[in-house]
């Protein structure tokens, strides 16, 4: 009796899993983008939250279980998830989401990456020789990723191809208009000198024309120490910054320590969807980011 019930449950679970596309996004921004493009056609979850550093999570049992049932993985790539994603795909026993399969989508393959050094020497810290992976911080990248993702969704679910295309068109229109608005709003930020904690803001700076004058991390991925911060404080006297930017998943202590001594603001930007109360979707994310940046200028 119990065994029969067990298999019945499995059968039910398997059936519901095929009613809609099951999408596992590596980060909240890709979960949000997939929701924009697929709406009710996909069941979307994110492997990480805005308060988790996407470089450093583990292939937890719950994630392996979610990967097992996924039809599509939507991730950043460019080695951002190198510490856990390969383990996740291998442990999942899921042929659909293996690298190279249609169910494996990497955003980094569809945009031009910044900071491609090609240098792979760990004396330089925890670097990504293939380019900086924090690419969603420039909303213009979202447009090209959306185009590619909409095509991929249509490939996986051809019956609804027209819907994905229509939703993408709608997204492109709304995001294009929003970018125009943000560009205007951000005019006062152009050329503003800022200090960053990790290279999470390279794309944002590239888009808005922020001038990154200092990085709190002595080397990428290496936590700032008191000595390195003291050095930085000296440097900031010569090249002052207007504010210090950090993500919600980074410890506020180094930024606050420095901000207090340099007499500038430490600004926690939402970084991704869910990173602040206002950043409930991709539009709210940049609305809030710009509001906070402009707040930092005052």
């Amino acid at each position: 009796m119990f065994i029969r019930l067990f298999f019945l449950t499995l059968l039910l679970l398997a059936n519901t899993a095929h009613a809609t596309l099951n999408v596992l996004a590596c980060e909240p921004e890709w979960a949000a983008l997939t929701r924009e493009l697929a709406g009710d056609l996909a069941r979307v979850s994110s492997a990480t939250t805005a308060r988790q550093n996407p470089h450093h999570i583990e292939a937890r049992p719950s994630l392996i279980a979610r990967a097992r049932n996924a039809d599509l993985l939507v991730c950043t790539g460019a080695d951002l998830e190198i510490g856990w994603l390969p383990l996740l795909t291998r442990e999942s026993g899921n042929a659909r989401i293996q690298p190279g399969q249609p169910g494996y989508f990497e955003a980094a393959a569809h945009v031009r990456l910044l900071e491609k050094s090609g240098i792979a020497d760990r004396a330089q810290g925890d670097i990504h020789p293939g380019g900086n992976p924090h690419l969603h911080a420039d909303p213009r990248n979202l447009l090209s990723v959306a185009n590619a993702l909409a095509r991929r969704l249509a490939d996986l679910d051809p019956a609804n191809a027209a819907q994905y295309a229509a939703r993408n068109q709608n997204f492109q229109k709304r995001m294009g208009a929003a970018i125009a608005r943000w560009d205007q709003e951000a005019a006062p930020l152009r050329g503003a000198p800022v200090a960053v904690q990790h290279r999470s803001w390279s794309y944002l700076a590239d888009w808005l024309g922020l001038n990154v004058v200092a990085d709190l991390e002595p080397k990428p991925g290496i936590e700032p120490s008191v000595a390195s911060l003291a050095n930085l404080l000296q440097g900031l006297k010569a090249r002052p910054a207007r504010m210090i930017l950090r993500t919600p998943y980074q410890s506020p202590k180094p930024a606050e320590w420095l901000a207090e001594r340099a007499g500038i603001d430490a600004v926690e930007l939402p970084y991704t969807v869910g990173g602040s109360a206002r950043a409930t979707d991709l539009f709210g994310l940049f609305d809030d980011t710009l509001a906070k940046l402009k707040g930092g200028l005052k």
Binding site: V111, I179, A180
Partner: peptide, 11 residues
């Protein structure tokens, strides 16, 4: 003058 709608820069 128009918003900088980027060209999808295929790598």
């Amino acid at each position: 003058k128009t918003p900088a709608v980027p060209v999808a820069a295929a790598p």
